[in-house]
């Protein structure tokens, strides 16, 4: 029925079968996009949620600081805002990873799981070091700078790693930017560090989110034209 190479007129044969190369290419294209959409982690909600969490969470700390323009809210309220937003961002990230990899077994799942666990492991190490330094008599005025500087170093490095694993320039660029923001936050001092984290840090995530979204949209357009 489909031995198209040996017919007298291949187009006639394929027309009789209700087949056209255009239609088949469109079927391939549509099924490929559906599979990618279902299997790949979508960075847009992850980056967007983290952008909002940094903007809102660290912004709240800046506004709660007695040495800043405020204080406009209590420190505990700022802590609550940050806690809730960060918990939501962690939930979105984990949900994406778990949901997309369900029913898939093999190297990609292992890489994803190892990368995912790198985050709590790295932050557990960071807490250990920082709490140790504070216990050893680190001046209280410096502690907030230690937290923001070291946290951003860890975040930046993990985004560099993500960029390497998935050959993703947006992630890699965000990692590099986060390292710069970490250093800048320490130079800014308290409470300026919170403004830097909120605007430059959160802003970096939101720019990365926009770039990832644009890349996704561009991919859909170019692939649709064979």
């Amino acid at each position: 029925m489909v031995d198209i190479g040996s017919g007298s007129d291949p187009r006639l044969m394929v027309d009789v079968e209700g087949f056209s190369p255009e239609k088949s290419l469109a079927v391939i294209e549509a099924q490929h996009l559906e599979a990618i959409r279902s299997l790949r982690v979508d960075p847009v909600p992850i980056l967007g949620m983290w952008g909002l969490a940094w903007l809102g969470g660290f912004g709240a700390f800046y506004l709660a600081s007695p040495d800043g323009p405020g204080p406009y809210l209590a420190t505990w309220a700022a802590g609550l805002v940050l806690g809730v937003l960060f918990a939501a961002a962690v939930a979105v990230s984990v949900q994406q990873g778990v949901w997309r990899s369900r029913g898939v077994e093999g190297p990609s799942r292992q890489v994803g799981a190892m990368y995912g666990w790198s985050w709590p492991l790295a932050f557990a190490g960071l807490y250990g070091v920082n709490l140790g330094l504070i216990h050893q008599g680190l001046p209280t005025g410096v502690a907030p700078l230690l937290w923001s500087g070291s946290s951003l170093l860890v975040v930046g490095l993990l985004y560099l790693a993500g960029g390497m694993i998935w050959t993703d320039r947006v992630q890699y660029g965000l990692g590099a930017w986060t390292l710069v923001v970490g250093a800048a936050s320490v130079s800014a001092g308290v409470p300026g560090n919170f403004a830097v984290l909120s605007l430059a840090g959160g802003g970096g995530f939101l720019v990365a989110c926009a770039l990832a979204y644009a890349r996704g949209a561009r991919g859909r357009v170019t692939r649709a034209q064979p």
Partner: peptide
Amino acid sequence: TVALAALDDGDQIT
């Protein structure tokens, strides 16, 4: 075939 081709090398799907 197209759907399975979207999997990474060495991966399998239920």
